[in-house]
Write a protein that binds this DNA or RNA. Sequence first.
DNA 1: TAGATTGTTAATCGATTAACAATC
DNA 2: TAGATTGTTAATCGATTAACAATC
Lengths: 213, 213
Amino acid sequence: MSNDNKKISLAVVRRLPRYYRYLYDLLQSGVTRISSRELSEKMGVTASQIRQDLNCFGGFGQQGYGYNVQNLFNEISKILGTDHRFNVIIIGLGNMGHALANYENFKKRGFDIIGIFDIKPELIGTTVNNIKVMHMDELDEFVKNNRVDIGILSVPYGQTPAIADRLGRLGVKGLWNFSPMDLKLPYDTEIENVHLSDSLMVLGYKIDSKMKK
Amino acid sequence: MSNDNKKISLAVVRRLPRYYRYLYDLLQSGVTRISSRELSEKMGVTASQIRQDLNCFGGFGQQGYGYNVQNLFNEISKILGTDHRFNVIIIGLGNMGHALANYENFKKRGFDIIGIFDIKPELIGTTVNNIKVMHMDELDEFVKNNRVDIGILSVPYGQTPAIADRLGRLGVKGLWNFSPMDLKLPYDTEIENVHLSDSLMVLGYKIDSKMKK
DNA sequence: TAGATTGTTAATCGATTAACAATC
DNA sequence: TAGATTGTTAATCGATTAACAATC
């Protein structure tokens, strides 16, 4: 069984997409097997960590052999849910919403954008990357009639809390938040923040602290 | 002195922008003083962690009183380098580059976008959000004549390593990478990755693992 | 002064690394 | 079989939390 009731730490979970990427690249290069040591050298982590991480989910390797790349990739895909699809809607078709609607990598990773919502009249009824743009008034109806797993929040700062609450109330399971604020909802809604400015500030800090040395 | 040679852990550094945001909001609300306990309740962390974090950089509080909000905000701004400005260029004016060029929050946090580079002839010479779009051929000259602290990499996957290397060689101090790959440069260049798809996959994992319970 | 809250040391917890028996 | 490498336990390291003396 791939996922028991034992709690996996978020530190491990956040490393999974990285394994996914490296294994995908190895597959592309035609590599069929790899040991934790070889992978650790490529990734710049310890072989110990790789084995510990993978064994949170099951014994995917074989003593004396290592890991079969295709098999390990499949297992990690399954853990990350990429074996099924996630239905995603975008709320807010500003510059960021536009960029996300056109980002092709999401589909490859198992995420299908099935609708975009905004309030600007001139946008309603158009399509972006073949995705229909609807009015926010149609949101509730749409979520009731379609399985919506994830809502991408790319709306102005001030509107974020109210729309997040609305999506949570509608039963959307996850929110991907691009506003520079931390969301807390009283629903069973998972939240993942992007916080671009925070990331840029961390880069600024790194640069400054290197200068001082 | 605000920053000694003692090494601050990245875990602490990544929390700084969050303190910055909360203190900014408190300032806006007219709050003049706050204790670590009050702030801890707002932020959902322990008061101990807040005091530990802040004391990595100096004693900004006062026994029996707490912290002066304006003063603490100023100190954290200084630590994050927001008291001076960072000059930033965007490489790649696709959908993401466009979104970033128009994102107003960066300026507020101390980052000025001073140029955009692309190769599409129809874009060269235009402006986006008052920022001049130049050809990649002009990049080296531009970097030599202007202080460029940070390069934002929003170019196609395949071109990322070569352009990253070129910026590193030109002495750009930090790269903000939007491609789903890990960069490693032989220069003194700090790198901060955004990895949007990774973040979305973590959200997918959270949703799935909650379902299984 | 008495009360409150910091700065800081000590204790705890969790995550990473090392080591090695199991086994392919 | 002998060599290699995993899965897993034990040791270490670092980060978080608790406690409290210092002090405003």
